[in-house]
Nucleic acid binder design. Structure first.
Lengths: 238, 238
DNA sequence: ACAAAAGTGTTTGCCGTACACCCATGG
DNA sequence: CCATGGGTGTACGGCAAACACTTTTGT
């Protein structure tokens, strides 16, 4: 704890500050689409050998979101990250047993179409079967998943998980994996269409080898976060 | 910027970290209920003479929420703060012109029944007619108001703005002030009752001096935050 | 009796789920 | 022509807003 005592010229305590990235992607694991998170096995103490989220210190003159992207770039092609938003800041003095560190976590999303090469120690792991994680990173993953699931319900955040064009069946598979429960394709299309999120491209997919009607292709109307279903109850309609 | 260069023994950059409190309360101003925020006029540079939110540095071994409450205690009786939640962390290197400071903001709520004595430099100011604020505190207030308005729609957060017992008319006045638009008392009662938030105490208020039927008194069923109307669309009903 | 304030009943419309049925393609 | 997968139409239920109407008090 002696390291915490470092102060500036005014006597104000100074802290390490780091950025943590919980990057989620729907990936095919054992022939099933699963919601996964990018992890990296730690080389050094503390928690050497355990999996952890990509994270690292904020540099001089650098904003937090820039720091997340910089540390993320060491693990994955950041041009594939279609959405990034702040989750929260964790400050429990004991969260890093080595030294006092305040950490701000971010949720990142990568579309199914992207499959970037990973360095040796990094892997995508399904969020519903995680190993023990270093620090409080398990909680951060849980917060990231919760945020994603909530926003899939009242925003157009699905765009960040999908390629630019897709069929309803493909969209459904991603929603099922991300939400963790079944979704009826009929209702998925209706809800997202009514909210103006889905636009048909006019093109059709080829039918599969076992036959069936060719599926229409769609894209999301907007490629950035929009609240499409604001939960404003008690608002007069006039 | 030279102060930013302070590093620990491992060469990791160190930062000032402060906690900011946006404490909101519905108060009667000029005979109308208004949503107000607690401000304090700054004594020192930078931004000397401007209003700012209560804020201050995090101490050694102190978590962020403890730091907010500690700095808040200097301005207001914190036992009146019925709800406190983190909003976000601001890290723009230029947000404090004097030195690099990372700041985490909180939303605090105080019920109408509380009217704590304030120190000389502190005041409650209506959020829809704010003067220019120091630093990025204007944005923090806007985020606090937005969070409150959203959560009034899908949680029981109203409990934090109200005394333990109240009539529907009193509740309506607070909702109107907090939401910034009219609310029909009939529908307010129905919505909150259906969600299980409101419980009648069985007692009645005295009728006003100009007559009228005496109002039933209610209380909130829970005195801590609960999501009563989760926005989970696309969930199968079975 | 009348005004004032509170509370109840009813109507309307939207939204989301479920389910039955129709369409287009490959074998 | 049948299996397979995609798409459309319809019915049901719940929730919230609006509004008319009834109840209870003070003057």
């Amino acid at each position: 704890m002696t390291r915490d005592q470092i102060r500036d010229a005014d006597g104000v305590a100074l802290y390490r500050h780091e950025a943590i990235a919980a990057v989620l992607q729907v990936r095919r694991v054992d022939d099933v689409e699963r919601l996964t998170v990018l992890l990296s096995r730690r080389r050094d103490e503390p928690f050497a050998g355990l999996f952890a989220l990509p994270s690292g210190a904020v540099e001089t003159g650098e904003a937090l979101d820039a720091a997340v992207l910089r540390h993320l770039a060491a693990k994955v092609d950041v041009s594939g990250v279609t959405h990034l938003e702040q989750l929260g800041t964790r400050s429990d003095p004991g969260r890093d047993p080595a030294q006092r560190t305040i950490a701000t976590s971010y949720l990142g999303l990568v579309p199914t179409s992207s499959d970037p090469a990973l360095p040796e120690r990094a892997r995508w792991e399904p969020v519903d079967a995680l190993p023990a994680l270093a620090f409080d990173h398990g909680i951060v993953v849980a917060e990231a998943v919760e945020r994603l699931r909530a926003k899939l319900s009242y925003t157009n955040l699905g765009f960040a998980l999908m390629p630019t064009e897709f069929t309803i069946a493909e969209l459904r598979e991603v929603y099922v994996a991300a939400l963790g429960h079944d979704v009826a394709p009929t209702n998925l299309q209706r809800v997202l269409t009514r909210r103006g999120q889905l636009v048909p491209t006019g093109e059709l997919s080829r039918a599969g080898t076992r036959g069936g009607r060719p599926a229409r292709r769609f894209r999301f109307a907007e490629a950035s976060l929009i609240v499409t279903d604001p939960f404003a109850v008690l608002r007069p309609e006039g």
